[in-house]
Design a protein around this nucleic acid. Structure first.
Lengths: 347, 347
DNA sequence: TTGTATGCGTTATCAT
DNA sequence: ATGATAACGCATACAA
């Protein structure tokens, strides 16, 4: 009895036949519709059990015109920042009994293909886009296709966007460094690899400028470097910064992973943090706590969670795509741990 | 022109109408079938562009009976070990132009529901299961439903399984500690939360026993503790171990995240690693390198990648589910960094 | 070379 | 309360 119908997946028709009813009735019991006589309901249930039937979700999607899935487009999903955003998003998605389709992007091409194709394919009911900004044509294509989209850590006027104030975050960090007596402050920014995270990097630079200007300090272009958003990038940039005769007494890194690279660089140079070098990172990933790294905290899980909630609101609450874009601003906050101290008054 | 048909997704019929052909022809050009006159092909292409048409993948799946998606069932996907396995898997999936549906599981219930429902739902063409072992009924249900499955870091006789030798890994670690003169060795194992990672934890314990037995040492049960697979777990367990009058001179942790917790515990106790305490972790996650943690390396990315490859082989190479289970063994390797030294001969 | 009809497994709208 | 039947959007066999 176990092998004779191997590989044959039962359909609603099989259930109907076994139970001796029509498919309509089976459909009704599956969907918990009212108006089924308890006796027949029993028979149908029994048939379902016997056949181990479970409804073909593809066929269901075909007619119901929704898939129960949320798509997330995210660059380099293994990086800690994205992981923590994803964590919040997944929690919300799972909590709502939905599925997650993950679209990892590592090149401009991939990103553009996803933006172009995903709306029409109808494999997901909505799209959460993380740290990637669609251009105008992509954005209007989303709207035209009636595909709900929310942007997290990215912005477009036509789309609901959830941003955190990167200018403010960078400003706070640099201001703090200045308040601790630092005058030569190195800034390791992230590259805008194929325009990924373009605004983010730019805003952090603006925040730096603001803090420096406000303190009446001179901006020294040779102290700002641009490096990949990873440990190696941070390490190399720090090495370069720290090799200078007039090396900075403090470094502000655009991300915690880069800051970790700075820590590695300092170690290899036998420089002690914070005794010889103060350091502030950005994001507040889990490792920042372990390393006692002072950093600018972003509410990453909250961003993912809130993004999904907004997205589900769009999906659920619209008769025909009549959702209007919303701009949600979240605030970063400076998280002081043990990588910042006052400079020795050696100048 | 931009708003009059907003929300209306074009179908193959629309394209056919615009191009002035039948839907069969449109279908043929979409699927690059031969036997379409270049001229009409042009017209169809033009219509597709004009309408920004892209085929409804749901409808296509309905008839082709495959979805182009791979499902991955993974517990606590944000933990570094799983992230690295996922990284390898995603690379392989993306490389093959497929989609990833991520099923994150945090409870026994979730796991069992996924095992029970996913095969019949046909939302994915195959399932990669990470660090979770289906029971016999689940395993045979997979086979019966004709759903290709491969297990990574888990084992079941009916399913293709990819395992790494945890006994050997633990054995090597403890043996190394013993070779460095350690006699009192603490072991922080991971809990088998709802039977997750049951074999893994058990095998590590067996490896420990083997090394201890081989060296003619006495096994001291009070030195083995079971803790959650996270930093807090490792830290608490280490605190407990290190509070003893006859505290161990070395600790072997069942995972790197727990080992990081040990590092935190040592720091809070003003104990220096490795001067006062030697430490070996397990997995070799990225942070292990930063922290210079000696550890047992698992080929995580390779596991994910290979798992997907095997899975795709199952999916592609079978007329009717006639794939036979395979057992693939990978070897761990001891990765010595800077958290192990010889004990001072103080006894 | 191309158009039309059939069916994939559901749900929903009808009759009954 | 329940059974037949029409969509859903596509691929495909078959007719033209």
């Amino acid at each position: 009895m176990s092998d004779q119908n191997r590989g044959k997946i039962p359909t609603i028709h099989d259930v109907a036949r076994i139970a001796g009813v029509g498919i309509g009735t089976v459909s009704r019991v599956i969907n918990h519709s009212t108006g089924v006589k308890p006796a027949t309901r029993q028979r149908v249930q029994a048939a379902i059990e016997e056949l181990r039937y479970s409804p073909n979700l593809i066929a269901r999607s075909m007619i119901s015109r929704n898939t129960g899935a949320i798509g997330i487009i995210v660059p380099f999903f293994t990086r800690p920042f994205f992981i923590e955003v994803l964590q919040g998003a997944v929690a919300a998605i799972t909590h709502m009994g939905r599925e997650l389709v993950l679209y990892n992007v590592e090149t401009n091409d991939q990103r553009d293909r996803y933006f172009r194709d995903l709306p029409g394919q109808r494999k997901v009911d909505g799209l959460l886009v993380i740290s990637l900004s669609p251009d105008d044509v992509a954005a209007s294509a989303f709207r035209q296709a009636g595909m709900p989209v929310v942007l997290v850590d990215a912005y477009h006027p036509l789309l609901t966007s959830l941003v955190v104030d990167n200018i403010e975050g960078a400003y706070q960090a640099v201001k703090c460094l200045i308040a601790h007596g630092h005058r030569r402050i190195g800034f390791i920014n992230g590259v805008t690899e194929g325009n990924f995270r373009f605004n983010q990097a730019n805003d952090r630079l603006i925040g730096l400028h603001r803090a420096i200007g406000e303190a009446g300090l001179l901006f020294e272009p040779e102290l700002v470097l641009t490096a990949p958003w990873d440990r190696q990038g941070g390490k190399q940039a720090a090495l370069q910064l720290l090799a200078r005769a007039d090396r900075p007494t403090a470094i502000f890194a655009a991300s915690d992973v880069q800051a970790i690279g700075v820590l590695e660089a300092a170690r290899s140079l036998h420089l002690s943090v914070p005794a010889d070098l103060s350091l502030i990172g950005y994001d507040d990933i889990e490792m920042a706590e372990v390393l006692e790294l002072s950093t600018v905290q972003q509410p990453m899980k909250r961003m993912g969670e809130l993004g999904v909630q907004k997205l589900l609101a769009c999906i659920g609450g619209t008769a025909d795509g009549e959702f209007l874009p919303e701009l949600i601003r979240l605030q970063p906050s400076l998280m002081m741990r043990h990588t910042v101290i006052h400079t020795a008054p050696n100048v």
